[in-house]
């Protein structure tokens, strides 16, 4: 989802910056995060999910990239999931190419299921086997954990 509005303002602020805000008197104008609403219309906030599988392909496309992940079903069959991620353009500026994430990379996804009833989800967190988050996510911090 392309973010033309100041929609980052709507991130839940875990840290108490109220004191700082009061002292410097800067009120960050929070425009409605219309773009976030678009995602919560595509994906179901009531249906968080996790899955683990291997990367088949990362479609480095806009406006959002798509990760195709093979997940082993209970009966041993393989289902290919499609997980929505971000625009690849900034990553490409920083040297990421179609060869960076190898086919077969094991990925854990935390996200939310698509409302259209298919094997699709938005990837809130993409986590590698060593626990670090894909690309620029840093290590460790899981959704809902801590602080």
């Amino acid at each position: 989802m392309a973010m033309r509005e100041d929609s980052n303002y709507m991130r839940m602020n875990r840290f108490c910056l109220a004191a700082i805000v009061l002292v410097i008197g800067i009120l960050v104008t929070g425009k409605t995060s219309i773009a976030h609403h678009a995602f919560s219309a595509e994906f179901d906030i009531e249906k968080p999910m996790t899955l683990k599988g291997t990367l088949v392909r990362w479609d480095m496309i806009n406006p959002h990239s798509w990760f195709h992940i093979d997940v082993e079903g209970e009966s041993g069959n393989t289902i290919t999931w499609q997980i929505e991620g971000g625009s690849p353009n900034e990553l490409i500026r920083n040297g990421v190419t179609k060869n960076t994430v190898e086919v077969g990379t094991v990925l854990s996804i935390e996200g939310y299921l698509a409302k259209d009833g298919t094997e699709k989800a938005v990837g809130r967190n993409f986590i590698l086997e060593d626990g670090s988050r894909l690309f620029l996510g840093g290590s460790g911090q899981k959704a809902g954990g801590g602080q």
Binding site: M12, N13, L17, V28, G85, G86, N94, Y112, F135
Partner: peptide
């Protein structure tokens, strides 16, 4: 302040959480 805010994890079950993580993609 904004950098801290932006790189922090969103709260599960909230609308901002139903989104890929901007930070991971450098956005």
């Amino acid at each position: 302040g904004r950098a801290v805010n932006e790189s922090a994890q969103t709260t599960p079950g909230t609308i901002p959480d139903v989104h890929y993580d901007f930070t991971q993609f450098g956005l």
